[in-house]
Design a protein around this nucleic acid. Structure first.
Length: 300
RNA sequence: GGCCACGUGGCGGAGUGGUGACGCAGCGGACUGCAAAUCCGCGUACCCCAGUUCAAUUCUGGGCGUGGCCU
């Protein structure tokens, strides 16, 4: 069973309820809750919650690492296989649309990019800016270049790395595709639907609650590691803001406000993603999803 | 009560007698290995009324409102 939904929609609690009905195992599909160093600020399930039902792929990655869809997909594959082998139902829960897409539609079989090529391209991005990289991509992989916006640093970098490393265009690799791990038609999938305004209120109160339960200290410990600010974990909602506050650059109120705003904006992108990229996912409320899980449990 | 200033989109803030500065917030969209990332797009705003004018957000008069100063 796949459960997606916007941040602060109550996915974790829903997952617990569903797992209890199905006797399932909860598997994380959130790109930030995988980081060990970020528990409070990412609203990862608490140890108490984790004790209620088995959870996998939460906090299993160090913040110094560059996790990715590819790694998650492999981890998820292993986890799903394990859960099924044990005769349980995997309940995959998270807010990262790209992860669910990879899971249900497969990921291109692009080999890992050699470290030196990656470093070169990223170094150039920093020193020269996107424009030259885009120009080069237009020569080496016109198809991808045309597809991408000239300012899209992230994707342009990736596309260029891929042609340089493999000699094939990213579009080529994508066409080839790869089998999906989960057949979308055979898995129940839901997008937990919560009204935008209500979500905004929950984000506000949740962020304040995070601060009240040690988010600042957690971020301080993370900051003390002196990691590269470009690492994904360093960009988790609220982290950059709270670091600025810890440095005395802004007040706590301003930091909180920034963190809340980023989270709300993200929520909108999540909705856009599922609405348009995964149109076959029904948007339902928590009660409905629990009811469906209960039906399932009866049949099984 | 008198004098002065100001009234621009949700907020901040330019400006002009005839092409919607801009910033923030918000909304929509893209999305295949950093995705809580990266990127793209979107606003018939000029307090009200009358006048001048081919044309008023812009000029004039009045009204209302806000702020400051004065008595």
């Amino acid at each position: 069973m796949l459960i997606a939904g916007p941040t602060a929609s109550g996915k974790s609690a829903l997952a617990l309820a569903v797992a209890a009905k199905l006797g399932g195992v909860i598997i994380n599909a959130d790109s930030m809750q995988v980081y060990r160093d970020l528990r409070v600020i990412t609203a990862r399930p608490t140890p108490q919650e984790e004790a209620q039902q088995p959870h996998k792929l939460y906090g299993h990655v160090d913040a110094a690492e560059n996790y990715s869809v590819g790694r998650w997909l492999r981890d998820a594959q292993t986890a799903i296989d394990g859960v099924k082998a044990a005769g349980h139902v995997p309940i995959i829960v998270g807010g990262t649309g790209l992860y669910f897409m990879a899971l249900t539609r497969g990921l291109a079989a692009v080999p890992p990019i050699p470290a030196d090529i990656r470093a070169t391209v990223r170094g150039r991005l920093e020193s020269e800016g996107v424009a030259p990289l885009y120009a080069e991509l237009s020569m080496r992989d016109p198809e991808s270049a045309q597809r991408l916006m000239p300012g899209d640093r992230s994707r342009i970098t990736r596309a260029l790395e891929v042609v340089l490393a493999t000699g094939r265009s990213l579009s080529d690799w994508h066409r080839e595709g790869m089998p999906a791990i989960i057949e979308p038609a055979r898995a129940a999938r839901f997008f937990l639907d919560v009204e935008r305004e209500e979500l905004g209120r929950r984000i506000d109160t949740r962020f304040d609650a995070m601060l009240a339960s040690g988010a600042l200290a957690e971020v301080e410990r993370l900051a003390a590691r002196g990691l590269n600010p470009m690492l994904p974990a360093m960009k988790a909602h609220g982290v950059p803001w709270l670091i600025r506050h810890l440095r005395g650059e802004i007040g706590l109120d301003a930091a909180a406000e920034g963190g809340k705003r980023d989270t709300k904006r993200y929520t909108k992108r999540q909705a856009t993603w599922f609405r348009n990229q995964m149109p076959d996912w029904p948007w339902l409320g928590a009660e409905q999803i629990v009811a469906i899980a209960a039906e399932w449990a009866k049949k099984a």
